[in-house]
Simulated scan of single mutants.
Amino acid sequence: MASPDGHHDDKSSVIIRCQDTSSVGVTFCDRFSLDADSVHYAVELRAPGLTARVNEVVAWIWDSDLTAFLEELAADYRGWDGERSWRTNDRDLTVSAVCRSGGYVGLTWALRPWTRAAGGWGASVTTWLEAGEHMTSLAADVRNFLTGTEVDSPLGDA
């Protein structure tokens, strides 16, 4: 996807693969900026029988940060009770997190574009990652992606 000014970075992406089922995953890609206040990017979900994509998720500099949410999850690698969640200001991307015994974090990635429009759609997948190191790597990769530092690190392959 090219930005309106023609700047497009094909190399920068973050791929998250579920440790339990490698065919389930999430990709952050096609990042571009229109101004100093925001970063636009695409999010793709994959699972057997499912492919979903939102082309223009927006991260605002004044918005709550996905990276900070992921870093908090990584810091609490010993676990927590209940569910934690984060969402974009436009509510087109939501991430919910739960902990299960054995040191695993379940991240449910939900796409719901056009939430106010009739005929909107939604899709979600859940990726399971090891708490601690994998969550720390995910947070760093997402931070690098959103800030424009070159990454191409498929999580779950390590």
Results as ranks from 00 to 15, higher is better:
residue 48 P to M: 00
residue 83 E to V: 13
residue 72 E to D: 15
residue 123 A to S: 13
residue 59 A to I: 03
residue 74 A to P: 01
residue 126 T to Q: 13
residue 126 T to E: 11
residue 49 G to W: 09
residue 54 V to S: 08
residue 86 W to D: 00
residue 59 A to C: 08
residue 118 A to P: 10
residue 123 A to P: 03
residue 105 V to A: 09
residue 101 S to G: 14
residue 81 D to V: 10
residue 72 E to N: 14
residue 46 R to Q: 11
residue 106 G to A: 15
residue 61 I to V: 15
residue 80 W to T: 01
residue 47 A to P: 03
residue 89 N to Q: 13
residue 105 V to G: 07
residue 88 T to I: 07
residue 133 E to G: 14
residue 111 L to P: 01
residue 55 N to H: 12
residue 125 V to Q: 06
residue 114 W to N: 14
residue 88 T to F: 05
residue 127 T to E: 05
residue 134 H to L: 10
residue 84 R to E: 04
residue 39 V to L: 05
residue 92 D to S: 14
residue 82 G to M: 02
residue 85 S to T: 09
residue 98 V to G: 10
residue 97 A to D: 00
residue 133 E to P: 12
residue 84 R to P: 07
residue 60 W to P: 00
residue 81 D to M: 10
residue 133 E to I: 14
residue 50 L to K: 02
residue 56 E to M: 13
residue 57 V to M: 07
residue 46 R to F: 08
residue 127 T to Y: 05
residue 81 D to K: 13
residue 134 H to N: 12
residue 66 L to P: 12
residue 61 I to M: 13
residue 72 E to G: 13
residue 75 A to M: 08
residue 65 D to W: 09
residue 111 L to T: 05
residue 131 A to K: 03
residue 83 E to L: 09
residue 85 S to P: 04
residue 52 A to M: 06
residue 130 E to K: 15
residue 49 G to A: 14
residue 113 P to I: 04
residue 47 A to D: 08
residue 68 A to D: 15
residue 46 R to K: 14
residue 99 C to P: 01
residue 78 R to C: 14
residue 71 E to G: 09
residue 69 F to S: 01
residue 40 H to F: 12
residue 137 S to H: 15
residue 79 G to R: 03
residue 82 G to A: 01
residue 75 A to V: 05
residue 54 V to M: 07
residue 128 W to P: 00
residue 96 S to L: 09
residue 76 D to S: 12
residue 132 G to F: 03
residue 45 L to P: 02
residue 113 P to G: 08
residue 133 E to K: 13
residue 62 W to I: 13
residue 53 R to H: 05
residue 103 G to Q: 02
residue 130 E to Q: 15
residue 42 A to H: 03
residue 42 A to Q: 07
residue 113 P to K: 02
residue 96 S to K: 12
residue 62 W to G: 14
residue 116 R to E: 12
residue 123 A to C: 09
residue 86 W to T: 01
residue 84 R to T: 02
residue 123 A to H: 10
residue 53 R to V: 10
residue 103 G to M: 06
residue 135 M to A: 04
residue 132 G to P: 04
residue 132 G to M: 06
residue 121 W to Q: 09
residue 67 T to F: 04
residue 75 A to C: 08
residue 55 N to E: 13
residue 67 T to D: 08
residue 52 A to H: 05
residue 135 M to W: 04
residue 70 L to K: 00
residue 124 S to R: 12
residue 60 W to I: 08
residue 87 R to W: 10
residue 93 L to R: 03
residue 69 F to H: 01
residue 87 R to A: 15
residue 136 T to I: 06
residue 70 L to F: 02
residue 119 G to D: 00
residue 61 I to E: 14
residue 40 H to A: 09
residue 44 E to P: 05
residue 84 R to N: 02
residue 52 A to E: 02
residue 74 A to M: 00
residue 129 L to C: 07
residue 121 W to C: 06
residue 82 G to H: 03
residue 57 V to H: 06
residue 105 V to H: 06
residue 125 V to W: 02
residue 60 W to H: 14
residue 41 Y to D: 04
residue 99 C to G: 07
residue 90 D to S: 11
residue 79 G to F: 06
residue 55 N to W: 11
residue 87 R to L: 11
residue 97 A to V: 02
residue 113 P to F: 06
residue 66 L to G: 01
residue 108 T to Q: 11
residue 137 S to N: 12
residue 50 L to I: 05
residue 69 F to C: 01
residue 100 R to L: 10
residue 67 T to W: 04
residue 64 S to R: 13
residue 112 R to E: 11
residue 65 D to T: 03
residue 108 T to E: 09
residue 94 T to Q: 12
residue 47 A to H: 03
residue 82 G to P: 03
residue 52 A to D: 03
residue 56 E to Y: 07
residue 99 C to L: 12
